[in-house]
Design a protein around this nucleic acid. Structure first.
Lengths: 127, 127
DNA sequence: GAATTAAATGCAAACAATTCGCGTTTTGTG
DNA sequence: CACAAAACGCGAATTGTTTGCATTTAATTC
């Protein structure tokens, strides 16, 4: 038997897809019906292994847990260190960089993590 | 009294500087004399707040803890998912990207996290 | 240079995020 | 329909990290 993409797991993908922003496990758990936390962890692990979701660790004082987001479109995020909002930005210029890494270091990139920390427009105005 | 960069903390900076590669807390603790783990954590927190060291979270099965490295030169790293080695690469092209983010989103970047996962030359040959 | 005081350290306990074991339930497959 | 494999729920166990507090260290003031 080889079947893993259960309804619940699809639901998680839809959830992340719908939000379009990274959510941590707690938020996912709360938004995903009344399932067990370990089920959520197992689901996310599976989905990530299938390349359906991605995760990042955000080095911000607000939260030291992992954030998951849909891998549907390859996005990066801006994270405001003041209001802790995420802003998606398209992934651009990375292919070229990965090509250069292959040429220069003979290292073949399968994945990259890129996150920007800083201040969003609103917070820059307010402080 | 305002004094914080103790000998021990300097020692940690030197250690990370010397290695030139990210180390996790366990490795740092083992390499840093016989100090308490909490002292190591407090030291790293301080050093990071001072911008003397940086940290990244590596999304690799090998280890799910944080890695610290000297902020002396701004580097990024390649991480081989097979042998789990790190390879430093200079930070290039990011300034331009940050400029674009400021222009397009009015978001001012103070820091970025960039990590490449993949296969190193040796491992590509071996498997 | 001794007294004062703030910060650092070590140690043990507390936390919080994540994982594991296992009995039960669900769901493809023959 | 019976069987087998995987998913789920639940509780317990791990593990990375933080905290509280008594003690030590070191800068500052007199």
């Amino acid at each position: 038997m080889r079947k893993r993409l259960t309804d619940f797991r699809k639901e998680l993908v839809d959830l992340l897809d719908g939000r379009g922003l990274p959510l941590n496990v707690k938020e996912i758990h709360e938004s995903a019906g009344d399932s067990d936390l370990s089920t959520v962890y197992r689901a996310l692990e599976y989905l990530e292994s299938q390349g359906m979701v991605r995760s990042i660790f955000v080095p911000c004082s607000c939260d030291r847990s992992k954030y998951y987001y849909s891998a549907g479109k390859h996005l990066h995020f801006l994270h405001c260190e003041r209001c802790h909002s995420f802003y998606p930005v398209p992934c651009a210029g990375m292919k070229k960089m990965e090509k250069k890494i292959l040429d220069d270091y003979r290292f073949s990139v399968t994945e990259h993590v890129l996150l920007f920390m800083g201040r969003c427009e609103k917070c820059r105005a307010e402080s």
